[in-house]
């Protein structure tokens, strides 16, 4: 092992992710190289100092009041979503805004309407089955997206799409929770399925973008 090779392996050695073969080679090199030993000592001192930094730092001002105000005004809601650029709508196509409007309008219309479309048990079970299938499809889409991202450079477009997927997730959470509370409500079941469809479409598009970067 050359001196240059050894220097490259010191970080992995410190992190405990070096293969046993490389560990042996590095060990032999360190025994004969005072310069690498000094380098290793410095690296170790830095990593130890970092691990010894206090885990807890208290903010100088009270943050709870601001948090509580947000909870007060918007129970169980997220802070404002990031500003969208025009480019996203071109790329995303399916319309995050549509998903949010769908969920917001859908929930207010469905939950607070006196006469809701009630579906019998067998239809409720079918809806439940379809929703489970779409959930599984989403999971597959997520796995495909992560695999594509691992092999790509993250582009600005992809970053935006990932942000948008997270926002759709929040919309989904709301609609699923409403549907679980009213499993015989046909409109809510449709709302959940449509939200899932939005997510699957966006996941597929994001995976294609990641594969092309």
């Amino acid at each position: 092992m050359t001196h240059k090779d050894a220097l490259l392996l010191l970080n992995d050695h410190i992190d405990g992710v070096l293969s046993p073969d490389h560990e042996d080679e590095l060990h032999d090199h360190l025994a004969t190289c005072p310069s690498c030993r000094a380098e290793l000592d410095q690296l170790r001192a830095l990593v130890t100092a970092a691990a010894d930094l206090p885990e807890d730092i208290q903010p100088e001002r009270d943050l709870w009041t601001g948090i509580e105000q947000m909870l007060e005004g918007h129970p169980r809601r997220m802070p404002a979503s990031p500003r969208r650029s025009k480019a996203w709508f071109v790329v995303g196509g399916i319309g995050l805004a549509a998903a949010i409007i769908l969920v917001t309008l859908g929930m207010s219309g469905i939950l607070f309407r006196e006469q809701v479309e009630i579906i019998p048990d067998n239809y409720a079970n079918t809806a439940s089955h379809y929703i489970e299938m779409m959930e599984a499809e989403c999971r597959q889409g997520e796995v495909a997206l992560h695999a594509a991202i691992d092999n790509s450079n993250e582009s600005v477009t992809l970053v935006r799409m990932r942000d948008d997927i997270q926002i759709i997730d929040q919309a989904l959470e709301e609609s699923i929770s409403a549907w679980r509370a009213n499993p015989h409500n046909r409109r809510l079941a449709r709302l959940v399925m449509t939200s899932y469809r939005f997510k699957v479409d966006l996941l597929n598009k994001a995976a294609r973008v990641a594969s092309n970067t």
Partner: peptide, 12 residues
């Protein structure tokens, strides 16, 4: 961001 994190924790 700490405030945002706690608000998100409440939400999620």
């Amino acid at each position: 961001l700490t405030q945002d994190a706690f608000i998100r924790a409440w939400s999620k």
